[in-house]
C-alpha cells in the first residue's frame, strides 16, 4: 500500500476542489493507503467545529471526523487559520495545527502528492 499526501487550498464553499480532496482521501484510505491532508489558504476555515450543514452549502466537519476515525492525518496551517479568526480551541478535535514544514515533511514521506490549488 502507498502513502498519499494531499495539499488542499480551496475553500469549503464555492469550490468543489475541496469536496474532491476529501472524497479522494476517503477512497484512498478505504483501499488501505496511508493518507495525510494539509489545509492551507482558504481551506483552513473548514477546521472550525460546530458547522451547520445547510443543504445549499458544502460542509466539512462530519466528513473530516469520518476521515480522522479512519486514520487519516489532517493538519491545518496555523498561520492561515488564525489569520481567518479561528482559534485552536474552536477547531475540530483531532485535527493537528502546525506550520508549513508539516506539509513538506509529509511530502518527503509520500509516494504520491496531490496539490489541489485554491482560487
Amino acid at each position: 500500500m502507498g502513502t498519499l499526501t494531499i495539499g488542499c487550498f480551496p475553500s469549503i464553499v464555492g469550490n468543489m476542489g475541496y469536496d474532491f480532496a476529501l472524497k479522494l482521501a476517503d477512497a484512498a484510505v478505504s483501499k488501505g493507503h496511508k493518507v495525510s491532508i494539509w489545509f492551507s489558504g482558504n481551506a483552513t476555515v473548514s477546521v472550525k467545529a460546530h458547522q451547520k450543514h445547510l443543504k445549499d452549502y458544502s460542509t466539512a466537519e462530519k466528513y473530516l471526523q469520518a476521515l480522522l476515525a479512519k486514520g487519516v492525518e489532517i493538519c491545518t496551517c496555523e498561520a492561515c487559520t488564525v489569520a481567518r479568526g479561528i482559534q485552536k480551541t474552536e477547531g475540530i478535535e483531532g485535527i493537528q495545527w502546525n506550520a508549513m514544514h508539516w506539509y513538506l515533511a509529509k511530502i518527503h514521506a509520500a509516494d504520491r502528492v496531490l496539490q489541489i490549488g485554491g482560487e
Partner: peptide, 25 residues
C-alpha cells in the same frame, strides 16, 4: 489570489522541515 504567495512561503519552509525528518533526510 493567495496561492501564488503560498507557493513561496511553503517553499521557504524547507529551511525548517528537518526538525520533522530523520537525520540525513
Amino acid at each position: 489570489g493567495e496561492t501564488s504567495r503560498l507557493a513561496i512561503t511553503h517553499a521557504i519552509a524547507y529551511q525548517t522541515v528537518e526538525i520533522l525528518l530523520e537525520d540525513g533526510d
